[in-house]
Design a protein around this nucleic acid. Structure first.
Lengths: 358, 358
DNA sequence: TGCGTTCTCTGAAGCGCTTAAGACATTCTG
DNA sequence: CAGAATGTCTTAAGCGCTTCAGAGAACGCA
């Protein structure tokens, strides 16, 4: 009819077309029981005729005070994040859980301060925020608080009022270190993920590493170092890999292996790092586990595909994600955050560790 | 002051507190040049005092008709999707590109019909949708059209009005098949990703596979089959892997390898599949490339880590993502979609292919 | 028949913000 | 010093929807 491109039809247009009130049209879409079937169908027909696809999500959100999205805040970029199976598994479980209540995930990738920029958080269209292993004091966390958005933190220090789920990182690290000690190892190297918010990379002392801005990093390191210390092993070299690429990690592992007194065992803060260490060893013709033992962390699927399969610290990533999702839904339902949950870990011994060479 | 938990402060509250109009407060946040610095700072101070963190994103969106989010529609779940490096690289580049204009990504994972459920799309708070390799006729696509959301499609059939970027899948498949023919191979197997929206898995004829609901699937298959046919090789067995797990893929590859007349070459529709095929070969003590040649598709990072490193068809995933992002921004700026772009591919010959055994 | 229910539908007040247009005062031009 | 230009702030009209509190009509029961 109208020749010119008209603006999007609205509820009112449909109402006018049918000759009913706006409320009735709204009900036709949202509460079918509030009007007669006949009228409802007439409304729906008119809507289709006019090209009205249903209530505008934004306007609806304004009226209902509910968006239907959860902001997922990362420390890293999207790619780096997802190249880590540990994250994608967790995220998937989380997504599946909140999907049940119709919530989608809004991805807020990291900027330069250990998390997404504050203004991205302030402008995010979301009912709740999930923080996944952000750096301590990340601006994003402040922004969440300023907006008083409900918050779920994963693998992070406790935030008052927020729900929290984390992993027994220290316990896992202790088990890993003890396992190697039990095998007779005395010369170690620690391969660490990025510790500070600034990418750096390179050797660092245990003291420096203990100041990492990432809790899981700190916890794992402390677990390793303290346990080794109880056996009188101190001054263990730590090498931080900057960025998340396999190449960088492999290079970092190489540095540890090329040291004067080559370690007989490598404690790696993630399976990804451990796999890179395996590659570095192979490059040097070092036999694993005969000449070198390697242990990872997380027990992601690739850990068991490797040759030799990785000895690693297993955590139930799926459960972690699901739990975070449940916590999110609980907060969204207006309930209070339960006490923080720490999930257990378990050492899984496979082929990448063996007795220390003589 | 007030003892009871008060509702969130709004612009008006701040305006009242300072004794100015609502517009002025809005300007203090959005257009600093519209008021005196002194007043602006007073407003900001008052806002802070009241715990007002800035304009509500939803209300702002309603007024500005802009959300600041892009809906990314997937065929699969989050985890399955991201375990594929090809996707995470593409997505990362896309995210980085649209981030420049302040757009975040809203993830809409797949349901049961080759894409996210229609109502999820209808309710998504987003300015634009990106469809990544959805099944033909996915309900999500219809929903996008009904909402008349701008659309960018990646690796999918052309949709009128939408911007499109895709890969020369067929050309790549042709190159891969020709390479193997040139090496003297005459007995082939094709390892295919999931073809239909229903998970199935198992052997299928080339005819069935050509009816795949996924364009890249069809294209690659056609490229393989047609090229082999030109050399007189027909009746090539195709095995579809259901789901996306490594285990399933490995099993499927095994089925091809355990056939009566074992193929000497495997054409795999992705690097992930090819890596699984490598594992299946190893399991059977088959030497690659002496007894078996394997070629992948995509040239994702793990392809070059494998032993032997994968011969594969390289596509520039980063560029694909960036381009999709640029197209998105262009549509959002109100400009028309340019003609569809098809990105070139290139065969990368590495260690996993060699002359056919006698 | 009278009165309380139930069923349909409407009126109107928001949800919290942006922005065009304009009022008023101050500062610049020549 | 008149008139134009500029700077500062306000008024008011939306953006498109939900939902509470009814208004009428039709129905059930005794």
């Amino acid at each position: 009819m109208a020749s010119t491109r008209r603006r999007h039809p609205t509820l009112d247009d449909v109402a006018d077309e049918v000759g009913v009130s706006r409320t009735t049209v709204s009900n036709a879409f949202n509460r079918p029981d509030q009007l007669s079937t006949a009228l409802r169908e007439e409304v729906l027909r008119a809507a289709k005729r006019l090209g009205y696809a249903g209530p505008d999500p934004v306007a609806r959100s304004l009226a209902t005070r509910r968006v239907g999205a959860i902001a997922f805040m990362l420390d890293t970029g999207v790619s780096a994040a997802f190249s880590d199976p540990a994250l994608s598994i967790t995220l998937d479980a989380l997504a599946a859980e909140v999907d049940r209540e119709g919530h989608a995930l809004l991805l807020l990738p990291g900027g330069d301060h250990g998390g997404p920029p504050a203004d991205r958080v302030l402008n995010a269209q979301a009912d709740l925020a999930v923080a996944y292993s952000l750096a301590d004091g990340a601006p994003a966390l402040r922004a969440v608080r300023d907006r008083s958005l409900p918050l779920v933190v994963i693998d992070q220090p406790y935030v008052p009022g927020a729900a929290r789920v984390s992993t027994d990182d220290r316990g896992g690290a202790v088990a890993a270190a003890r396992h190697l000690l039990d095998l007779g190892h005395r010369r170690f190297g620690i391969l660490s993920a990025q510790c500070l918010s600034e990418p750096r990379g390179g050797p660092m002392t245990a003291e420096e590493a203990a100041k990492s801005m990432f809790r899981d990093n700190r916890e794992r390191l402390t677990g390793y170092v303290d346990t080794l210390a109880t056996a009188g092993v101190t001054g263990v070299p730590v090498w931080e890999t900057s960025g998340t690429s396999r190449e960088q990690a492999q290079q970092a592992a190489g540095k540890l292996l090329d040291a004067d007194r080559r370690p007989t065992a490598l404690l790696c803060m993630s399976d990804e790092l451990a796999l890179s260490a395996l590659a570095a060893a192979r490059q040097r013709g070092l036999s694993v586990p005969d000449e070198l033992s390697v242990v990872g962390f997380d027990d992601t699927p690739p850990a068991s595909w490797a040759e030799p399969a990785l000895t690693t610290v297993r955590q139930d990533l799926q459960r972690k994600g699901r739990l975070a999702g449940e916590l999110a839904l609980r907060l969204l339902a207006g309930r209070k955050a339960p006490p923080p949950v720490t999930l257990p870990v378990e050492l899984v011994v496979r082929g990448s560790t063996g007795p220390a060479p003589d």
